[in-house]
Amino acid sequence: MTDALIIGGGSGMGLALARTLLAEQMDVTIAGRSADRLAAARAELAPAAGGRVRTVRADIGREEDVAELFDHLGSVEHVVVTAADVTGAYGRSADISASAARSVLDVKLLGAWLVGKYAAGRVTGSLTYTSGINAYRPNGSNTIVAAANGALASLASGLALELAPVRVNVVSPGWVDTPVWDRLGMDKRAAFADLAGRLPARRIGTADDMAQAFLSVLRNGFVNGTVLHVDGGHRLV
């Protein structure tokens, strides 16, 4: 049995979680759709993992990929989904193409639902999704992303009933310094400095902050059907 499956674990929060779980002596499988990121993740993690890490290429927006992924793994104790595709999804709704919006929903929401669908009978411990602060603090330029993230709370509630006693939860990050920001075409340093000055935590989150949050959800057997906010107090400002 696989201890943990991280979908979207090739970089950022997912990769940090993989490092954390491997340090806990867990067997970890990382799934993602980028062969290059998976190869880089494996190269980074394998030397210290002692054979406890493997990678599988899969796109959770495709039902056949999700079905094959779970068939390949068999039984798995914990599943964490950090996968997202927000390419072309930031801006005013009038300027966002329907195809870009569907891409967000295909991975962030429908892909998450597909994971829940095929988790039945295979996942024994927990299933944890990743949403985001924009579900609770939209800013007028991320509406479709906010909608997809917000829907994950309802999805988790429904699946917590369907999959019981498997626990289903959501971790909601605030702004976290990960490679995804480098693909958004913005002045990351200036944006981070501005927000850090307003946050009660007085800093931007790190991927390791999020890894510890996921680990706490995996460990606590009485956390179920809920959203854990790890945002430095962003919802307060």
Rank of each mutant, 00 (worst) to 15 (best):
G221W: 03
H78D: 14
P47E: 13
H229A: 10
L38Q: 04
S172L: 13
L73S: 09
A164H: 00
R37V: 04
W175D: 07
I7Y: 12
V28A: 00
I6C: 13
L69I: 07
S131R: 06
E162G: 04
G132S: 06
D177M: 14
T226N: 07
S141E: 08
L152W: 10
A43G: 06
S99H: 00
G225Y: 00
R102C: 05
M1G: 15
D106F: 00
G158L: 02
L218S: 01
V115S: 05
L215G: 00
Q212T: 05
G74I: 15
G140C: 09
V170S: 11
R202K: 15
I144N: 05
A112F: 00
A40Q: 15
D208V: 10
Q25K: 15
K117C: 03
A193E: 10
E162P: 05
T178P: 08
G132C: 02
V53S: 04
I144R: 12
Q212H: 02
P200C: 09
R198Y: 08
A23W: 03
L159V: 02
L218K: 04
A160S: 12
N149D: 15
G50R: 01
V180K: 10
I6F: 12
G32E: 06
G232L: 03
L73R: 13
S172I: 13
L127V: 14
A31C: 02
V166P: 11
R219K: 01
S157E: 12
I96G: 06
A153Q: 13
A190Y: 11
V104T: 02
M210V: 03
P47Q: 14
V217R: 01
G225H: 00
G32Y: 03
N142L: 07
Y118M: 05
L155M: 05
A40D: 10
K108E: 01
L215W: 01
R92M: 05
T87M: 03
V123I: 01
A84E: 04
E63H: 11
N169D: 08
L17P: 10
V107G: 01
A213W: 02
W175K: 12
R122P: 07
G88H: 11
A16E: 11
D231C: 00
D3N: 15
R62N: 12
A84F: 03
E24Y: 11
A160V: 03
A196E: 05
I7K: 08
A211N: 00
V53E: 03
